[in-house]
Design a protein around this nucleic acid. Structure first.
Length: 341
DNA sequence: TAATCGTGGGT
DNA sequence: TACCCAAGATT
């Protein structure tokens, strides 16, 4: 039974695998571990559509893990801008430097798990996909497919234990990497969160969730909490065609990213509202931006008075090249309030 | 265990 | 529009 499930799925995958830039072409040798690792980190909580252009740019700029290890961290952060969850980019550089120092990626799941930015999912995925190891790979796609196939109704996150055990039971000894990618392709294209395409599913005949009549109700999730609202200000200080940018502290919201100076909205319920120095400030309007755990109304205030220069650390960035600064989306959108005038 | 940490696409 | 969601890790 269990072997039959993986065999059916792999047979489907051989015909229906998506062509993705980080996958080896059919008949090609094993994929490059660097590309597997890079794609897996980028794909954490991020869609294939969002990742693809970033993956192409990264591999063009830094074709090997040694190249990435040698890159200035701020260049990598700027290249990551817009992709979100910026601790991934900080850990990416750390990890690349450790791996370069080691002379290459370790092949065992346990050793991969020790690298920065690799948790249970990514360590298993790299071990299986890049090195052909048997590893139990469980992401949100696999959770959904397995919860439906076995009709596991224990709500998440508590139900993850049973889901993982069930995934272990159907994971084959050979082609574990293809099996994992097949499960994820199935979850992404057929066993979708809403409106699953059971008529196209290679596993539908044995699916307990479908047999029960309403597979879309699985997996059951705990209700999510309301998203609070915050207000804050960012400040536009311009001299001779250059704008004053700071680099945010390494930890916390948007850590390590270039940004406009702000009033501290990210570190408290609301910003204090004060500009970085006294003077005359013009309110240029506001944008609304939604983060994972709060919504933000961000006002942009522009320095009118050519007041005293900021004393904190930062750099004067050419306004004409602002896109290359790699501002996180909220600040990039706030900047348009000035640039669009 | 629960909170923190982004963003854009799909419906 | 408002909401859901995504190849999760870290603390």
């Amino acid at each position: 039974m269990d072997d039959r499930v993986s065999a059916q799925l792999l047979n489907w995958y051989d015909k229906s695998a998506r062509a993705l830039p980080w996958r080896a072409l059919p008949g090609e040798a094993a994929p490059d571990p660097y590309r597997v690792w890079l794609s897996e980190v980028m794909l954490q909580q991020t869609t294939v559509a969002a990742v693809t252009p970033y993956f192409i740019r990264f591999t063009e700029s830094w074709p090997t893990v040694q190249d990435l290890a040698a890159a200035p961290e701020e260049d990598v952060m700027a290249a990551w801008a817009g992709l979100g969850y910026y601790s991934r980019a900080r850990n990416l550089v750390k990890c690349a430097r450790e791996v370069a120092e080691m002379g290459g990626f370790p092949e065992e799941e346990a050793a991969l798990l020790k690298l920065p930015g690799l948790g249970a999912y990514t360590a298993a995925a790299v071990a299986a996909i890049a090195f052909g190891k048997r590893a139990v790979v469980v992401d949100a796609n696999v959770e959904r497919v397995v919860a439906r196939f076995f009709a596991i109704d224990e709500p998440l996150p508590a139900g993850r234990k049973a889901i993982r055990a069930a995934t272990d039971r159907i994971t084959p000894d050979r082609r574990a990497g293809d099996f994992a990618q097949a499960m994820m392709d199935l979850g992404a294209t057929i066993c979708t969160a809403r409106d699953p395409k059971c008529l196209l599913c290679p596993l539908s005949a044995d699916c307990a969730g479908r047999a029960q009549g309403d597979p879309a109700r699985l997996p059951v999730k705990a209700p999510k909490k309301a998203r609070p609202e915050r207000r804050g200000r960012a400040f536009w200080i311009e001299r001779d065609g250059r704008v004053w940018l700071i680099r945010r502290p390494g930890k916390g919201m948007l850590g390590g990213m270039r940004a406009l100076p702000d009033d501290g909205w990210s570190a408290r319920a609301d910003g204090h509202g004060h500009p970085p120095f006294a003077g005359t400030w013009e309110n240029c309007g506001a944008i609304r931006h939604v983060f994972t755990h709060f919504g933000l109304t961000l006002e942009l205030h522009r320095d009118l008075a050519n007041g005293p220069l900021p004393e904190d650390e930062g750099e004067w960035w050419p306004v004409a090249q602002l896109e290359e600064a790699g501002l996180p989306t909220a600040f990039a959108r706030a900047a348009t309030l000035v640039l669009a005038r």
